[in-house]
Amino acid sequence: MSSLSVSETAGIAQASADARVSIRVEDVSVTYRTSLEKKPTMKTTLLRLGRRERIVREIEALKHVNLEVRQGEVLGILGANGAGKSTLVRTMAGILPPTIGRVEVRGRVSTLLALGVGFNRELSGRENVTLGGLAAGLSRAQLRDKYDEIVEFAELEEFMDMPMNTYSSGMYGRLAFSVAVNMDPDILLIDEALSVGDAKFRKKSFKKMQELCAQDRTVVLVSHALGSIEELCDRAVWMHKGELQMEGEPDDVVHAYTKFLDVGEDALTMEDL
């Protein structure tokens, strides 16, 4: 933190006074290196020696993104696959620290990311919920309080002590959704995980989302379902190739994005927007 300049420090002091900001993303870039191999091994590394193949690729997932989410606001993020939406949400959650810039988050965060809850399908639902909660920083007492609510909402009472590899994908998604929304978070980060389960559960989860959005909670919602962005969000941003393309009223942003999708990137200069 000692690398902060004087002006930045002054900015933070102001920010501390302005308690209404939940998430502040300041000039954030995220670059990471990833292997092109699915399972990199020493063997392949040795075999490749001297052949000068590059198997590590640098990915610039976010480029100088500035964004503020106020407390109680529901922000929708839309954009094509690979636009950096998930990276942005993961940076807000602290999973992927920025390469440049700074992210400030105020409040308890609950995440519902694309990949679902739990980590070990051989463990029971109950064990996965407990371990996930403890890793997320909840205390045992908090977990105990919430546990019944989570199970009841997911409608998985009789499945909680069964290994999660016996679950259907819908049940998996239902549990993930239920854990995320029932943790009473100040900030809820959701990445393309709204439409899970059967029609009945979708209805129920959408209702729960409306309920959560109506409360004084900050919600960041990544979705390809443009309809739900229009319906749930107060504001929307459109991301394109790691940059913020547009920011504004959900209707306007969705409209611009749809137009962009119809016309295609080449035919459309950004002034047309």
């Binding site: 501390s16 620290p97 992210v103 988050v105 965060v109 100040d186």
Partner: peptide, 14 residues
């Protein structure tokens, strides 16, 4: 009050 609510700052790793 702030000390009681959770606050996180994520910055580049030194």
């Amino acid at each position: 009050v702030e000390w009681k609510t959770e606050q996180h700052v994520y910055e580049p790793h030194r």
